[in-house]
Nucleic acid binder design. Structure first.
Lengths: 295, 295
DNA sequence: AAACCAATGATCCATATGTTTCATACTATA
DNA sequence: TATAGTATGAAACATATGGATCATTGGTTT
């Protein structure tokens, strides 16, 4: 339990001034915060051997509008688990009161921030690692992401291009995207990115690859995504945002982490490859730091 | 998230034979187990966008006596999860260096999370809002992002495409990307995305547009980026990561927030446009939820 | 076309919930 | 001892909740 819970500290601080019954209630709340979040007030009162009204009185005593708020706070604490990082983010939400328009922005960004923090959970990390391992041992990496997931697939492929020539982006004009699979073998792996609603074409191409013996790994949004069943490894990314659209930011973050893990797997080779890219692009005069003069 | 939860596995196993509404409910339950434990059934139903009765039906479908049992099981999982989590963390600490890879991942993800949280600062929010305002009043929005920023530009354009036809992506085969600017006027705005190293072509096209009177807004990485000087509005995004590569996750997040602000500006129109898209794509049979059968 | 069936939505119901009110018991001060 | 003030318990209240019922829909089969 994180000791940095403001409500808990308040209860402890005011404990001495409480009446005996309030103390008994407060003590139970302190000792069993999960129960407060999970069961009804009357039940908590029964466990604490206290009248239901006492729980309400406790909440009011603490300056809260009612018992519901007390439970809500315990629920929030439980939701975030021991992830102190997300807790800090959440804390800021209540502080700031800004313009209406930037409220939307703030909510979205803080939500995304929390989602990324959550990706640090052991389960996600394990999946990341396993997927990276699978990709490392591949001869070729076919990257597939259609429609909304195109951006993620493209970027993953772009970064991988900087590291070598193992990556093949399954995307081409006139529906020729899948053609690169012609010479795919069982030594290869395909990274499929797809979120709800799942593009039919992506599923079909992935299925085709699988039947050719290509190993499938995926980034998708749910345990019941059709990709899960056909993948050797899957990384789950949240996509909810309080806007009209699903967010791809967590998916991109995952993709970038995967690239990093792959790059770090062989640092010397990575460094060499990057230097090579630098030289090549500087010869092509690709980059600039000044506003171009035009005549 | 404990992957070995019998109830979860049962839901996953039976997911395929559920009716669409049940699937929708089940999907939410799988993706948000904490909410099931913490809030009322009706609220869960609201979040999952299903009828309250559907939640009851889901519980019965799973062989449980009622929804209460479903919540009880999730509550139990959460209870043991909260103190089980600390144990897992401790375990990881004891294991020590065994998982170097997930250390990298954790660092990256937490760093990204912090960067997104930082974007909520007043200055960033002001810039976001100003940029969104500028984009709203535009006749056409030309979107330009080359090389590493292509993914961001593409995704912004993709989302804007769902909302209407104001967006034009400046990207084409054979170096024809800038051609769409032929009919650009001073009523139009160009959104340029570029980070260091700045692609020379992007700067040139932007400069060309500016000389045609097109308003420039940009997403870039520094106050001294060449884009700042030529832009009416600029949003700064961090790009540092402890990997070899610059991260584009914050830039994507910003782009998504911009899209949301634009969408929210005219909710009725947005909803109508999205519905239109839905119909169109469903007629094209674009999406699927099942693994495609192949013969 | 007709008839059936499962699936979904809308409505109603009994109950449990959080809160309030009121009466009683307790304690401290004069 | 009398009394004011508080703490506690019991009961009543409006409401929200989970569950059940019935009508409607949409797709299949005969």
């Amino acid at each position: 339990m994180p000791p940095s819970d403001p409500l808990r500290e308040q209860i402890i601080a005011q404990y001495d001034v409480m009446s005996p019954q309030l103390q008994q209630a407060a003590r139970y709340v302190l000792d069993h915060p999960e129960e407060v979040a999970l069961v009804s007030m009357r039940e908590v009162a029964r466990y604490a051997a206290v009248q239901p009204a006492t729980m309400t009185r406790l909440a009011k005593f603490l300056g809260l509008p009612g018992y519901d708020e007390l439970r809500a706070q315990h629920a929030a604490a439980l939701r975030q688990g021991s992830d102190g990082f997300a807790a800090k983010v959440r804390q800021r939400v209540d502080e700031g009161r800004e313009t209406v328009a930037s409220d939307t922005a703030t909510h979205m960004l803080q939500g995304l921030s929390a989602q990324l923090a959550k990706l640090c959970e052991p389960d996600s990390l394990r999946r990341l690692e396993a997927t990276a391992d699978r990709l490392m041992s591949a001869r070729k990496i076919y990257v597939l992401g259609l429609r909304s997931c195109h951006a993620i697939a493209w970027h993953f492929h772009y970064v991988m291009t900087l590291l070598g020539d193992r990556s093949v982006h399954l995307d081409g004009p006139g529906g020729t995207g899948g053609d690169a699979l012609i010479r795919a073998t069982s030594e290869d792996v395909m990274l499929v990115i797809s979120i709800k609603p799942y593009a039919r074409d992506a599923l079909e191409v992935a299925q085709l690859a699988k039947e050719k013996g290509v190993g499938i790994v995926s980034i998708t949004d749910s345990e019941v995504s059709p990709l899960v069943a056909m993948s050797a490894q899957t990384i789950l990314c949240p996509t909810e945002s309080d806007s009209f659209f699903h967010t791809l930011t967590p998916a991109l973050a995952i993709s970038e982490v995967l690239c990093s893990l792959l790059a770090e797997f062989d640092r010397p080779k990575t460094l060499e490859a990057l230097q090579q890219v630098d030289e090549h692009l500087s010869h092509l005069n690709t980059y600039s730091t000044a506003i171009p003069r035009r005549q």
